[in-house]
Simulated assay, not measured.
Amino acid sequence: MAALAWLLIPLMAAVGAGLWGSWASRHRKAAGDGSELAGYARFREAMERSHSGG
């Protein structure tokens, strides 16, 4: 019976790792990309203005 318990520990760890891996690699919505790209474009424009004015 003790051997069965020792075999179940790695089995449960493998199942938990599989569940965590599938949860971690899930597809998230890309709705925030538009605002991030717009912010990056504003940052680039500001940096170009500060360097070209000197």
Rank of each mutant, 00 (worst) to 15 (best):
M1N: 12
M1G: 08
M1Y: 06
A2V: 13
A2W: 04
A2Q: 11
A3K: 02
A3C: 01
A3H: 02
L4F: 04
L4A: 10
L4D: 06
W6A: 05
W6H: 01
W6L: 09
L7E: 04
L7V: 01
L8T: 13
L8R: 03
L8P: 00
I9F: 14
I9Q: 03
P10R: 02
P10A: 03
P10H: 09
P10V: 05
P10Q: 06
L11I: 13
A13S: 07
A13I: 15
A13G: 09
A14Y: 01
A14H: 00
V15H: 00
G16D: 07
G16V: 06
G16E: 06
G16R: 00
A17T: 12
A17V: 11
G18P: 00
L19F: 10
L19T: 09
L19C: 10
L19Y: 10
W20L: 15
G21V: 01
G21T: 05
S22H: 11
S22V: 11
S22K: 14
S22A: 12
W23R: 09
W23M: 13
W23A: 15
A24W: 12
A24E: 13
A24C: 05
S25A: 13
S25V: 05
S25M: 06
R26V: 07
R26I: 02
R26S: 13
R26D: 04
H27Q: 12
H27S: 05
H27A: 11
H27F: 08
R28G: 03
R28P: 01
R28Q: 08
K29I: 02
K29E: 03
K29Y: 02
A30F: 02
A30N: 04
A31R: 06
A31F: 07
G32V: 03
D33L: 09
D33R: 03
D33S: 08
G34F: 05
G34D: 06
G34A: 11
G34P: 00
G34M: 01
G34Q: 02
S35I: 02
S35H: 03
S35C: 00
L37H: 06
L37V: 08
A38Y: 08
G39T: 06
A41F: 07
R42Q: 11
F43A: 04
F43G: 00
R44V: 15
R44Q: 13
R44H: 09
E45Y: 00
E45S: 09
E45V: 05
E45C: 03
A46V: 11
A46W: 10
M47E: 09
M47V: 15
M47F: 12
E48S: 08
E48H: 05
R49T: 14
R49H: 09
R49S: 12
R49I: 12
R49N: 14
S50Y: 15
S50M: 13
S50G: 12
H51L: 15
H51F: 15
S52R: 09
S52V: 08
S52I: 08
S52F: 10
S52C: 07
S52G: 07
G53E: 13
G53H: 07
G53Q: 12
G53V: 11
G54N: 03
G54C: 06
G54F: 00
